[in-house]
């Protein structure tokens, strides 16, 4: 086990008061399966700054999805707290929207694209005109205005994930949570979707928390990256990404800072995996994750 640096990294910095939207404090999640307790998340503390895009990156099986489910209120943590904009999260709050990795399973196959995006608004009893406006706007921004009346299964994987993103945007969340959103699409689509997220986060002025195992992706997208340790998870390190705000798939990734950050995060994670298996054979999976 590597030394736990979470407490050092997460010392509050009063000299620089931040506009915190979400605070995760001492989060711990233990599953009990067949009488055996499995500790998925040990002790996580971090903050999301309003308006920023934060990525959580960690070795596979590091409890990223568990963490995201706890934050979104889908899962009750064993201990610790999640506070969104001053209100503790108990069950899914109104201010959050989630985009799941399994786009094919998170869309209603019996509803058109428009109905899929509209449903959460309809349930809120929002007026018809307001609904139509929001749905049109969000579909337009993800480039699906022409597919509004198609069914999800008539669309490609990338387009289905766009529908899920449009649904999240139309919901007007303060915080957009994305769980490995691009892990199941091909490389080109993935790059397109990454740029789409960068565009809409500004357009809709939304704070984003994105979970990924892809180091390049996390650095490319983020203002801030939280690196998790291997399970049971703690925060290995939290680092700011001082890249120019305007990102580009080619030029940003050519920057020397990008390479430095990438190497830094890579070593952190490799050390995490290496601590578990001295052969460090499994770092190959990270190498593929870091391609693109």
């Amino acid at each position: 086990m590597a030394a736990d640096p979470a407490t050092i990294a997460m010392n509050p910095t009063p000299s620089n008061p931040r506009d915190v939207l979400l605070r995760v404090d001492g989060l711990k999640k233990t599953y009990s399966a067949q009488g055996r307790d499995v500790e998925a998340v040990r002790d996580l503390t971090f903050e999301l700054v309003r308006g920023e895009l934060t990525c959580i990156v960690g070795p596979s099986g590091s409890g990223k999805t568990t963490l995201l489910r706890c934050i979104s209120g889908l899962l009750e943590p064993t201990s610790g707290s999640v506070v969104l904009d001053g209100a503790p999260v108990k069950g899914p709050p109104r201010g959050m929207a989630v985009v799941f990795q399994e786009y094919g399973r998170s869309l209603f196959a019996w509803m058109t694209v428009r109905q899929n995006v509209e449903l959460p608004l309809k349930v809120q009893k929002m007026s018809k005109s307001e609904r139509t406006r929001l749905v049109d706007q969000s579909l337009e921004s993800v480039g699906l205005a022409h597919s509004a009346d198609s069914y999800p299964w008539q669309l490609s994987g990338g387009m289905q994930q766009r529908v899920a993103i449009a649904r999240a945007l139309a919901y007007q969340p303060q915080l957009l949570l994305m769980d490995e959103p691009f892990a199941s699409v091909d490389a080109q689509t993935r790059a397109d979707l990454e740029d789409l997220v960068l565009r809409v986060r500004h357009q809709f002025d939304v704070t984003v928390l994105l979970v990924t195992h892809d180091i390049d992706e996390s650095i490319y997208l983020s203002d801030r990256v939280v690196v998790l340790s291997s399970p049971p998870s703690t925060v290995r390190e939290e680092l700011e990404i001082p890249l120019p705000r305007r990102r580009d798939q080619v030029t940003t990734k050519e920057l020397p800072e990008f390479a430095h950050l990438r190497a830094h995060v890579f070593r952190l994670i490799k050390r995490e995996s290496g601590a578990e298996t001295p052969d460090a054979h499994d770092s190959s999976s990270l190498a593929t994750a870091g391609e693109l």
Partner: peptide
């Protein structure tokens, strides 16, 4: 009923009668 779809409904606060009508009945149909 698909667990991801069920989670989707929960996180978008689709519950009660709306959940039955839009999720459970349709996916069980």
């Amino acid at each position: 009923v698909d667990s991801v779809l069920s989670d989707t409904c929960r996180s978008y606060r689709v519950h009660g009668a709306a959940r039955f009508r839009h999720l459970v009945l349709r996916s069980a149909s």
